[in-house]
C-alpha cells in the first residue's frame, strides 16, 4: 500500500504531468481563464484518467504485449502487437471521454455548457495519452497504473486550478499590451514549473 501511495504522490507532485513534463498544455492554457471552468475540467480529467489507465493496462497486458496472445494457440505465442498501442489507447480514451461527456450532460448541464468544446478535446489531451504511454514504458502493474492515473489526474487538477486563480487575479494588473492574455500565461506557467522543480529531489 505504501508503494502505491508513493506512486500517487510522485505523479501528483514530484513529476506533475503539467508542470514537470509540460503535457496537456493546450487545454491547460485555454480553459484556465476562470476558476469554475478549470475546476470542472480538472475533475473530468481525473475521472477519465482513473478509468482509462487500468483499461489500457489490461489491453496492453493481455492483448498487445509479446506472448500475450498465447491463449489463442501455440502459433500465436510470439506475436507482438505493441505497435498497435497508439491506435488502441486512443480508441479507449475517445470512448471513455464520450462516456464522461454523456454523464456530465446528464448530471450538470451548466458545467457541460461552460466547458463547451473542451470536453471532447480531453480526448486529444497529451496528458491522458502520455499517462498511458508512461505507464507502459515504466512497466507498472495494475494497481500501480490505477494510482498513477489518479495521481496524474490530481496533479493536472491542482495545476489548472492554480493557474486559473492566478490568471483571474492578474486580469486587473498592468500587464503590457502585447503580453496580455497568452504571453503572461506562458511566463506564469514557466515560473510555476521552476517552483515545482524544487520538489525534484524528494525521495518517497
Amino acid at each position: 500500500m505504501q508503494d502505491l501511495i508513493n506512486v500517487f504522490i510522485k505523479s501528483a507532485f514530484i513529476e506533475n504531468m503539467v508542470l514537470s513534463y509540460f503535457l496537456g498544455m493546450c487545454s491547460y492554457l485555454a480553459v484556465s481563464k476562470t476558476v469554475k471552468t478549470a475546476f470542472g475540467l480538472g475533475l473530468a480529467v481525473i475521472f477519465v484518467l482513473f478509468i482509462t489507465s487500468p483499461v489500457n493496462w489490461l489491453l496492453h497486458e493481455y492483448l498487445l504485449k509479446e506472448g500475450s496472445l498465447a491463449f489463442l494457440g501455440e502459433s500465436f505465442a510470439t506475436v507482438d502487437l505493441t505497435f498497435l498501442k497508439f491506435i488502441a489507447f486512443i480508441a479507449v480514451i475517445a470512448s471513455m471521454v464520450q462516456l464522461v461527456e454523456m454523464i456530465i450532460e446528464k448530471v450538470s448541464p451548466a458545467l457541460y455548457n461552460s466547458l463547451g468544446i473542451f470536453l471532447p478535446l480531453i480526448t486529444v489531451n497529451c496528458a491522458i495519452l502520455g499517462t498511458s504511454l508512461f505507464m507502459v514504458q515504466r512497466e507498472y502493474n495494475l494497481a500501480e497504473s490505477t494510482f498513477f492515473g489518479l495521481g496524474s489526474g490530481f496533479g493536472f487538477f491542482l495545476a489548472i486550478v492554480a493557474i486559473a486563480s492566478i490568471r483571474e487575479k492578474i486580469r486587473y494588473s498592468a500587464v503590457p499590451a502585447p503580453l496580455r492574455g497568452l504571453g503572461i500565461a506562458f511566463i506564469i506557467t514557466g515560473l510555476m514549473g521552476i517552483a515545482f522543480m524544487s520538489l525534484m529531489g524528494i525521495k518517497v
Binding site: 502585447p178 503580453l179 504571453g183 506562458f186 506557467t189 514557466g190
Partner: peptide, 16 residues
Amino acid sequence: PAAAMFIIGILIWIQR
C-alpha cells in the same frame, strides 16, 4: 522545459 515557456512568452511579446 520551463525555460522554453519563457522563450515562447518573449516570442509572443515580440510578435504582438
